[in-house]
């Protein structure tokens, strides 16, 4: 690998690490993800700037050009990341589906109980002979209390 390449890798990884740390500083990345990216950068930085390691490893693995080893490592790590991302995405999609279904079911259930309550109150009023005109204010009282309990 040429000197220029080494310097480029060094600058590149340095800037990238700063960027990752900045994200952590602003609390915009989860620790688990940050650990992966720091690890990733360390691997690339070591391979890119300490030629002895790269030469030795490529000799062991039978790779002719050491720079190919660097690419191989990067691709390998990225494939791993891509796989876990895709796996996590599947889980997230499933969770969104479940959440939507649950919100719908629970919303319907809440509306249903509210209607039942309303009906009960109307019946009680009819039995006790309270005037219909009082109903509006009573109604709103119930609605807000139901809303509070379900957190809507």
């Amino acid at each position: 690998m040429s000197n220029t390449m080494q310097i480029l890798v060094l600058i590149g990884t340095f800037v990238f690490v700063i960027y990752v740390l900045l994200r952590i500083h602003k609390l915009k990345i989860k620790m688990e993800d940050a650990i992966f990216w720091i690890f990733f950068t360390v691997v690339v930085a070591v391979l890119g700037t300490i030629p002895q390691v790269t030469y030795w490893l490529s000799a062991v693995l039978g790779i002719q050009s050491p720079v190919n080893l660097v690419y191989l490592m990067i691709i390998g790590l990225l494939v791993e990341k891509l796989f876990t991302l895709s796996a996590n995405l599947s889980i997230l999609e499933e969770k969104v589906t479940i959440l939507s279904a649950e919100v719908a079911i629970r919303g319907r259930d809440a509306a249903h109980s509210r209607d039942e309550l309303k009906q009960d109150i109307t019946e009680i009023k009819q039995k006790t002979g309270i005037k219909e005109s009082d109903e509006d204010s009573e109604d709103e009282g119930i609605r807000s209390s139901v809303g509070n309990h379900t957190g809507i």
């Binding site: 609390l27 620790m31 940050a34 650990i35 720091i38």
Partner: peptide, 13 residues
């Protein structure tokens, strides 16, 4: 994860 977080990340947060 915990060691990374305690030894490294908490200084950046």
């Amino acid at each position: 994860q915990m060691l990374f977080s305690i030894l490294l990340f908490q200084w950046v947060r």
